[in-house]
Design a protein around this nucleic acid. Sequence first.
RNA 1: GGGGAGAUACCAAAGCGGUCAACUGGGGCAGACUGUAAAUCUGCUGGCGAAUGCCUUCGUAGGUUCGAAUCCUGCUCUCCCCA
Length: 299
Amino acid sequence: MKKLLIVLAGPTCVGKTDVSISIAGHFGCEIISADSRQFYREMKTGTAVPSEGQLAEIKHHFIRFISINQYYSASLFEHDVLKILPGLFRKKNLALMTGGSGLYMNAVCSGIDDIPDVDPVIRAKYLKKNKEEGIAGLRIALKMLDPEHYDRVDLKNPKRIIRALEICESTGRPYSSFLTKQKQERDFRILKIGLEMPREELYERINARVDTMIENGLESEAHDLFVSRHLNALNSVGYREFFDYFEGKITRDKAVELIKRNTRRYAKRQMTWWARDREIKWFGADEIAGIISYIEMNL
RNA sequence: GGGGAGAUACCAAAGCGGUCAACUGGGGCAGACUGUAAAUCUGCUGGCGAAUGCCUUCGUAGGUUCGAAUCCUGCUCUCCCCA
């Protein structure tokens, strides 16, 4: 029986946590969380981390293990996961990775190109350039430094152009020269499972969960983190809207409404991301038995 | 009872004789995406069609006009002011 990594994907609120606990409980394996916001120890209520009970029942990795002040990325996640996987496979021939961050999960499954880290000073420089000259200025610079990438990137997306520019400058090489986009071979098999749910039902669950988060003190958690609002980790649904409320930009009701809407949109983006992955076998969120037998068939 | 304002696509709201299937915003839908991705960005949004296009819309019924969401009249409803 070869080592197997089960990957459980699905939009936020579809019920991944419950299903993952069931699967892990059934097979006696541990869970790798691939959720870019549940990584942060300062955030809790707004990220829907598994409950204390669930965490006690099944060993989870990568839940609230870094600070919002730390830099982290899909590439670091790939390395961190690959580092602990051998240990998990020694205990059990399978492990379960679940979460909502598609890019991070892809990095683990297929690899992500190694690109040197960038000096924050360089990034700051291009952020400033974007502010002063607009995206047109960024485009001109990119056309000079990396014409190949210029032809391929989304020229309307400043974030993408800035990323390319900062790599060009800090390495002295075109950003595109780092992109091999080659799928990495892993020494374990991967079985991808997706959870789906009718759109309307998912949206109702999202709306209800946001209300629950607020009852559970999301506002005061956001309030405590207000001083750190400029950090990327806090550019997150559920927090950014409350920050706008604290700053008097919107009413509290509006903030709550926006949290719901933005969560819905986030869920849609997740579904779009996974829709193109033909390896995923889709199940309804309540088809636990079907999922377990699907896994057993593929052991 | 008298006077005034208004009824526009899912919602809000422009348009006030032709270039209007109708600005814009919201909501929704679809998509892109190799670095803090719960982020960032794009397209579509009356119906049918791959498309030139065709068909049905601007409260309702008529009228004026070559031509109306835009002008006129009746009706229905909403809002405001005076009694």
